[in-house]
Design a protein around this nucleic acid. Structure first.
Lengths: 127, 127
DNA sequence: CTAAACGCTCACATCAATGTCAAGGGCAAG
DNA sequence: CTTGCCCTTGACATTGATGTGAGCGTTTAG
């Protein structure tokens, strides 16, 4: 399939797909007269890329991980493993931070709700 | 205290503190001849801002939440509550996404590790 | 064959938070 | 008063993923 279809199937814009490729993500298989040509397997690979990009993995690091997903290779595998572990640590840290933020938010929401309730009850309580 | 000290206490750069204020975050209390002047309570408020900014809350939305933390007010409280709930939803969604990404990553790590182990065992198994 | 629809590259724009630099004002100690 | 440090505003730079548009080739349907 060509880029338009892959874009439709993955939800990634054509622009993004070209960008991924430009960043070294092996999402391409250039063909006939310069047009990008993809197979069904690329759909899943792009999905994975989207997941990790959304998770804050830089395309730079992703480029060191993705090749490994497709074509195992001793040298790269070791490097990839290192990056993956780093990213895992970063991810865990981020998740914890977000959870903490959510707790703080819950507290604020609670305070706010209580405040609003007290104000609204003021009139009734005046009866 | 002035901006330098607040910066030192919170870890936020002077630039950031001015930026927060510019974005409508009530992190200021302009004084004598134009210099920003803060109280101890500002330290905690900035800390909260940092937490939420790091959690991906836009300064725009933060501006609708923060005033409420400091000075309860019916009108703003309702608006803030709406924003807070939206942000909470977004946060939860993000956390789930990151957790999913981490699982995907764990899988990749496992595959990679297995691959490496198999390759390394190849020589010993050849004996 | 022609037009529509799609693809290619290049380049500039965007957003958000922050860095950085410039030109100047405020204030304390010598 | 001067030196030094902190402050002010304003403007331009950066980073990363993506949008957008121009100018030009390709493929496909009529």
């Amino acid at each position: 399939m060509r880029i338009g279809e892959l874009s439709a199937r993955t939800g990634a814009s054509r622009r993004s797909l070209r960008y991924y490729e430009q960043q070294g993500l092996p999402v391409s298989a250039r063909s006939p007269r310069g047009q990008r040509c993809y197979g069904d397997d690329h759909v899943q690979r792009v999905a994975l890329i989207q997941i990790f990009l959304a998770a804050g993995v830089s395309s730079r690091n992703l480029a060191r991980m993705v090749p490994c997903m497709t074509e195992p290779n001793m040298d790269r595998a070791r490097q990839a493993l290192t990056v993956m572990n780093q990213e895992r640590t970063r991810l865990s840290f981020t998740i914890d931070s977000l959870a903490a933020a959510r707790e703080a938010l819950d507290h604020l929401i609670d305070v706010n709700r209580t405040f609003l309730a007290s104000v609204e009850d003021d009139v009734p309580s005046d009866r």
